[in-house]
Design a protein around this nucleic acid. Structure first.
Lengths: 255, 255
DNA sequence: CTGAGCAGCGCACTGAGTGCCATGGCCCTC
DNA sequence: GAGGGCCATGGCACTCAGTGCGCTGCTCAG
């Protein structure tokens, strides 16, 4: 009823790996049916396995906890993101911020693949504290993946880990802001456009520099970028020039 | 042994509210003793109440869950932060980013009040997944408090809620980066200085503008700031000028 | 045909969290 | 000074999530 592995083909042993878990999907379907009828906390695992017609023990073989059945595909998505960031062509890595933004878009894509499912889950997690907490731990893992990547990229910079953590948090926050706005609208608007907009704000705040390398340095510096390659200038419109200069000086003089 | 309400004064009914919970502290002490000896998951609530010499039921009267005993003062700190942000003198609110940074410093102060306790807790939460998840939900509430404040301040701006969420996340990330660095050093370094440094990075990235109001507008606009009061320019050092102009244009043209 | 391996089932157990009621001290009132 | 209410605590029983272990039955390899 959802996606992935249509017409599995019966009996063929070669496709067994892909077609194996109808049980997993059956559990997810049964769980969501009950969650939507009676609510999450009013539904016990026994209720779910009874409706799905399987043994209670099997539930915990497919999902380590009751919460996991609500986020069945995040584990795969997280692996995708990790792989995406590990596949660091020297081409893309010249703009780490853009790269993590693209990584965040992977998550959006997962949500956008099943809009109705995502909207239902959103309503559920919004009002069940336990699920919110679980979602936080998932989001945290995404954020850590982004931050770890940025830490590697920024390893030569002065405040590399600080910048990595802050930028990763900003990217995640922007992504979630747009994602939640889209989910609140029942998946009607253009999710990609909203996320692009939100990520654009972060990119503009943290040094988006499209041309690969304007000047200086060897053509291919694989591991360590030259420290302090960018200068961030923030200025209130109409502010006196001496304030701008002062900001630049304090920024550069730190540490 | 810790702080707060020294020499409670026995019997005086007026101070009863302040002196009431020695039991709470006893439970925290017993819990941490056992957590450090055997580990968090190897310690049951029954172990704690037995050591503390109280009934099991009383534990859950003081702490809604086993995790809460590890973070006994966050609830109060969160209330402090909310009050701090609600006390919005028109003076401070002219610089919302600075204000939320000051709010974050409240959390640091709480950690710094009991360094050894904080370090022990840090080691615990670092290696117990359940505690990490709980801490995330606590941090999330801090972040939401900051974001809600910024949303009110930015209600007139074009992308007010987006900016609020992103800045709140950045502030929390910077704070946590510095806090964890300090905790890893067993509370040796200067926590305040580290946090100031980290928050300075965020402030410099998101428009710290010391002088109250350079020009234009009525003297006191309490609720809604004029939209797009600041322009953020991000530039790679040595980038061509046309790139800078393009960045400004895309920033202003958005939405 | 037989044995290995695996997927699912059933059962029993631990431990967190909750509801309910009894107890016992404290204060306030009559 | 006696009774009554309030509150903190203790104790009990219960639900439910999650785990360990052993059993069955199916399939595939030899």
């Amino acid at each position: 009823m959802s996606s992935s592995s249509a017409t599995p083909g019966r009996g063929e042993k070669a496709e067994a790996a892909a077609a194996k878990p109808p049980m997993r999907e059956a559990l997810v379907a049964a769980a969501f049916q009950l969650f939507l009828e009676r609510g999450y906390e009013q539904t016990t695992v026994d209720d779910i396995v009874t409706l799905a017609g399987v043994g209670r023990r099997s539930f915990f073989r497919y999902f380590p906890s009751k919460e996991d059945v609500v986020f069945p595909d995040h584990e795969r998505c997280l692996a995708d993101m990790t792989a995406f960031l590990a596949t660091s062509g020297e081409e893309q890595d010249h703009e780490p911020v853009r790269r993590v933004c693209d990584a965040a878009r992977l998550v959006l894509r997962m949500y956008a693949e099943n809009p109705t499912f995502s909207v239902q889950r959103y309503r559920l997690t919004k009002q069940v504290p336990g699920l919110r907490a679980y979602e936080l731990s998932v989001v945290w893992r995404y954020e850590r993946a982004l931050a770890e990547y940025l830490r590697r990229r920024f390893s030569g910079r002065r405040d590399g880990t600080l910048q990595a953590d802050v930028i990763a948090a900003a990217v995640v926050a922007a992504h979630n802001n747009a994602l939640r706005s889209w989910l609140r609208s029942d998946g009607q608007g253009d999710a990609s456009a909203e996320v692009d907009h939100a990520l654009g704000y972060v990119q503009s705040a943290f040094g988006a520099a499209p041309p690969p390398r304007p000047a200086g340095g060897s053509p291919d510096g694989p591991a360590d970028e030259p420290a302090e390659d960018v200068v961030v200038v923030v200025s209130r419109r109409g502010a006196p020039l001496w304030r701008v200069v002062q900001e630049i000086e304090t920024t550069l003089a730190r540490d």
